[in-house]
Deep mutational scan, measured.
Amino acid sequence: MDVFMKGLSKAKEGVVAAAEKTKQGVAEAAGKTKEGVLYVGSKTKEGVVHGVATVAEKTKEQVTNVGGAVVTGVTAVAQKTVEGAGSIAAATGFVKKDQLGKNEEGAPQEGILEDMPVDPDNEAYEMPSEEGYQDYEPEA
């Protein structure tokens, strides 16, 4: 019985440690998101679009440190934060509304985080759909 109880105690310690790591990862992701939003706020009209992409990228980098179902929630929060940063930029006159959601080359930025393969159960990952990809044929 002692062996059984000791095993359960060790398992509990492992769960607590994993929860603490997840909590730490979420806190880091939130900190990076805040950094990115402050970065966007300090940019001029020309830099705002690039700044919004930076927020998304920093958040995406930190999301990889967070495991399990938390990833889905962090990704949703990050996307809403990026959308909010863009709205703030438009409201303050840093950028025109028609410039939001495009990178410096004018290509749409939507789907940055949505296409990231995420499995809350950590069982399997699927690649994003290939609808947006084109076949590449090298020139002879």
Rank of each mutant, 00 (worst) to 15 (best):
A11Q: 00
K58I: 13
S87Y: 13
A76C: 10
G84Q: 09
T59S: 05
D121L: 08
G86N: 12
S129V: 07
V74L: 15
A27Y: 12
P108W: 10
V26L: 12
N65I: 13
Y39E: 02
K60I: 13
K23T: 04
K12C: 13
E104M: 14
V74Y: 14
D135A: 05
V3C: 02
T92F: 15
A11L: 14
M5P: 00
G73Y: 06
G51P: 01
S9G: 14
K43D: 00
E13M: 12
Y125M: 03
Q99G: 13
V77W: 15
L8Q: 00
E61V: 07
D119N: 06
F4Y: 06
T59Q: 01
E61N: 06
G7A: 04
S9N: 15
G73M: 15
D119F: 03
E110R: 10
P138W: 11
E13C: 08
G73C: 14
E57S: 05
N65W: 10
E104R: 09
N65A: 06
Q79L: 12
V48P: 00
V63H: 01
E126P: 11
Q134R: 13
N103Y: 05
V71M: 14
A85L: 14
A85H: 03
G106D: 03
A11W: 15
V118D: 12
L38P: 00
T22V: 08
E20Q: 12
V77C: 11
K21R: 15
Y133S: 03
S42M: 12
V52P: 01
T22W: 15
F94N: 04
L8C: 01
Q24I: 11
Q24V: 06
E83A: 07
A30L: 13
G132I: 09
K32A: 13
K45R: 13
A140T: 11
A56Q: 06
L113C: 03
D115I: 04
T54V: 14
V26H: 00
L100V: 09
K34D: 00
G93L: 09
A107I: 03
E105S: 08
V37C: 07
V77T: 03
G73V: 14
E57T: 07
Q99I: 11
A53P: 01
E46Q: 06
F4K: 00
T33G: 03
M5N: 02
V15T: 01
E137W: 04
E130C: 09
T64K: 05
Q62N: 09
T72F: 14
V66C: 07
G73R: 06
E28C: 07
K10L: 14
Q99R: 06
P138G: 13
D115W: 03
E126Y: 06
V118H: 07
A76N: 11
G31I: 04
K6M: 06
E57W: 06
E46G: 07
V40K: 01
V70F: 03
V49M: 13
K58E: 01
A91T: 05
G36A: 11
I88E: 02
K34F: 14
N65T: 08
K58H: 09
K58W: 11
K21P: 00
Q62L: 08
E46L: 03
G132Q: 12
G106F: 11
D2W: 02
L100K: 05
V40W: 02
S87F: 06
K32G: 01
V16Q: 04
D98S: 10
A53D: 02
K10R: 13
S87W: 14
E130R: 05
E28K: 07
A85M: 13
K12S: 04
E110T: 12
G106N: 05
G31T: 08
E20M: 09
T75M: 10
V37Y: 14
G84T: 15
K21Y: 12
G31S: 14
K43M: 15
G86C: 14
Q62V: 04
S129N: 04
A89W: 15
Y133R: 02
G73K: 11
V37L: 14
K97F: 14
P117S: 05
G106P: 13
E110Q: 06
E131Y: 06
T22F: 09
K80M: 09
K43N: 02
E130W: 10
V37D: 00
A27I: 15
V37I: 07
A53N: 11
K97E: 05
Q79G: 04
A124L: 05
D115R: 05
Q109G: 03
T81N: 02
K96Y: 14
K45W: 15
I112F: 04
P128L: 11
V49A: 11
G73H: 13
Q62C: 11
E61M: 06
P117A: 05
P117Q: 13
S9A: 04
V66S: 02
A89I: 13
K23I: 02
P120G: 10
K80G: 04
V52E: 00
D121Y: 13
G51F: 11
L100P: 12
K60S: 04
G106E: 09
N122C: 04
Q99L: 10
V26K: 00
S9R: 13
G86K: 11
F94R: 01
E110C: 06
V82I: 05
A17D: 02
G31P: 00
Y125I: 14
E139M: 06
V66K: 02
K45S: 07
A76T: 14
P128I: 12
A76Y: 15
